[in-house]
Design a protein around this nucleic acid. Sequence first.
DNA 1: CCGATAGTGTATGATTTTTAGACACTCTTG
DNA 2: CAAGAGTGTCTAAAAATCATACACTATCGG
Lengths: 173, 173
Amino acid sequence: MKDYGTILVVDDNPAILTAARICLGGVFGKVITLASPESILATMNQERVDVVLLDMNFTLGVNSGQDGLLWLRSIHKRHPDVPVVLVTAYADIKLAVRGLKDGAADFVTKPWDNAELVRTLKDAIDKSKEIVPLEEVEAEHVRRVVEKCHGNISKAAEMLGITRQTLYAKIKK
Amino acid sequence: MKDYGTILVVDDNPAILTAARICLGGVFGKVITLASPESILATMNQERVDVVLLDMNFTLGVNSGQDGLLWLRSIHKRHPDVPVVLVTAYADIKLAVRGLKDGAADFVTKPWDNAELVRTLKDAIDKSKEIVPLEEVEAEHVRRVVEKCHGNISKAAEMLGITRQTLYAKIKK
DNA sequence: CCGATAGTGTATGATTTTTAGACACTCTTG
DNA sequence: CAAGAGTGTCTAAAAATCATACACTATCGG
């Protein structure tokens, strides 16, 4: 059961961290908890982390979530392939949208449902682990660009930076 | 100024549609309004639409947004490259997250700020129009997979479906 | 300590893909 | 109708990719 690796939980509320340890201990091989986000990057450099559960509100009284977004970007910059699930007590829709567009894997609200949280985290990890063959990525991208050019092969080829003949070959395949 | 093409606005409130026509008429070359979502696909087949502004709550009294998500998926299935911006009067964070994960370009809440709405729509269109060269997509994907395999070149090459030597060449480049 | 296993870095020649350039054809539009 | 843009196809040269191979290093269990 404990095959979902290492999770890093960051929250300035010790009670939440304790709850997380108990709730997630049965699912993850290792649960690392941090009360302050300053040491996130240091921790991630020392330890291989599979997923981060990041609280958005660190500065008491300032609940704009800016801090959380900042840390999200820092994590994403250094570790682009580690999924980050955001947590907030305040169901701020703008914050959620910003977070997801900034690269968060998902978004949950406090108080959370344990089963749902675990499912969300598992999904995030599974999705981050899935690897697509190069050929498939290429085919998909070619398809989209041709679509975007509304079937104009010449223009699509130019945008893609390849020859028209090569594009024909790739479409056929 | 009217170079942002055609927008399709779908909302069951006629007042909203009128407001949209006035507000968006100065920005979009053509503003098509629909009071019911049933004819979305038919409309999009006849007319080239550059962006869709889709209300999430059609069934009065049932505000789960399920209808909106359903229509979003229909649009996305037939026209994967037309950005869809979702609208809701109820700041339901779960709905927003679901919508974005289902492929929506962005999410705005009623009542909207006109300037912000226009900016959101423009961003969605600009982003949908940008085309990345094939080489760049390939390089990016290769980088991510090698990262995911924690530097194990052999495994990364296998996952990508290419030879180890070819991967070396691609990394060097 | 040894052998097995897995990974690295590099090389070679055969095979495949991509490219540049060209040709004839079909549209659309002024 | 003439011009411009796009299509579909061909050839030969250039480039990329492949299978295979060899020597080397690192790790791990017996």
